[in-house]
Simulated scan of single mutants.
Amino acid sequence: MTLNRRHLLAAGLAAPALLKLGTGSAQAATTLKLSHQFPGGSIDEGDFRDRMCRKFAAALKERSKGAMEVQVYPGSSLMKTNAQFSAIRKGALDMTLYPSPYAGGEVPELNIGLMPALVPSYAQALAWKNAPVGRKITEILEAKGVILVSWVWQAGGVASRERPLLTPEDAKGMKVRGGSREMDLMMKQAGAATLSLPSNESYAAMQTGACDAVLTSSTSLISFRLEEISKALTSGRERSYWFMLEPIMMSKIVFSGLPKDQQDLIMAVGAELESFGQEGAKADDTRVEEVFGKAGAKVVQLDEPTLGKWRDIARDTAWKDFANKNASCAELLKLAEKVA
C-alpha cells in the first residue's frame, strides 16, 4: 500500500504499511493498528471483544502468510475512547471495535445501534446484517468514511449501587448511565437523571456516587468489575431492552489503499468471526449472573409485561426523537421495525 505525505501527516498514529526489503526488490507488508476500550487479555482468556480482535489479527497473519499483521491496542491505550471513530474516518486510525452509539454525535443514524426495546433478541439482531436496515447502515457508514468489517451485537443489563433498577417506577430519582442519547431519553421519561460517559469510566462514577446505576453490556459489567460496587443486577439473559451493535470498523481511507486480495481477506475474516462474537456475548449473559451473585448482589430478571412498559416509554420518547432527526433516521427506524 502506498501512502502520500498528506495521509502520513494526518494519520500520525496509524501505520498501515511497512516495507520488507528483499534482494533487489521491495515487498509491501501491511501492518494495521486496531484499537478498543476494553480490558486486554490473550487470544484464549479475557473479554471476548479483545479476544475477537486478537483472533482477527492471528487469522489475517496466517492466511496472508505474513503479508498482513494487526497490532491490537486494548484499554484505549492507543487513543482515548471517544476519539476513535473520528480517527478512523480521517485515516488517523486503521481499525476499531467500537460501540456504534458512541459515534451518534457525528453520525446520528448510528444511535439506532442502541435503540431501547427496538431489538428484542439475538435472532432479530443477527437478521439485521442482510436485511434492508443492515444494508442501509453499511451504506451510511461507507459514505462517512467507515467500512463495517464485523457485526457484533450484545445484550445488556443494569448494575445498581443500592436497589435494583427493574421497572420504570424504579428509575425515579436515580442517576443512570444509559449508553446512548436514546436510552437516556427513555430513562429521563421514567424519572431518572442521566449522565454520559464511556463504559470504561463506569466504575469510578459508581464508586464516587456520581452514578447510581449503569446500563451496559453483560461483558462490560464483568470486565469492568462492577460487581465490586453493586448490590443489584438486572440481567439481560432472558430478555432486555438493551441490545447494542458493537462492530469492528475500518477506515475507508486505509481500506481503499489496500490491494483487492487484502481487502477481501479482511472482510472474509471479519464475517467468519461474527459467530464467535455472538457466542461470547450470549455466554456472558449467563456468566454475569454468576459473577454478581457470587459477589452478593441481588439478581433480577425482566418479565414480558415489564419489558412492555419500557417499550411503551421508548416508543413515545427515543423512537420518536430519532425518527424526527432526519429522513435517513426515519427510514432506518421503519426498516428496523420490519425485521422479523
Rank of each mutant, 00 (worst) to 15 (best):
G41N: 01
G46S: 11
A58I: 14
D44W: 10
K55R: 13
E69D: 09
Q71W: 02
A59W: 03
G46H: 12
M68T: 05
D47A: 05
Q71T: 09
E62G: 06
S42F: 01
M68Q: 14
V70E: 03
K61Q: 14
A57I: 00
R63P: 03
G41L: 14
S64T: 15
S64H: 12
G66F: 09
G46T: 02
E45S: 11
V72K: 11
F48P: 11
L60P: 00
F56L: 10
M68I: 13
G66Q: 12
R49Q: 05
V70C: 01
Q71N: 10
K65V: 13
M52Y: 10
D47F: 14
K55E: 05
D44T: 11
F56W: 12
M52V: 03
Q71H: 06
K55P: 09
F48Y: 14
M68L: 12
S42W: 04
S42Y: 08
D47P: 04
E62Y: 11
A58M: 10
A58R: 10
K61F: 13
R49S: 00
C53T: 11
A58N: 13
R63G: 08
A59P: 00
Q71M: 15
R51N: 06
G40W: 02
D50W: 10
D44M: 11
G66P: 02
M68K: 14
A58L: 01
K55N: 14
A57R: 11
R63A: 07
L60G: 09
E45K: 10
S64C: 15
S64I: 15
D44L: 09
R63N: 02
S42Q: 12
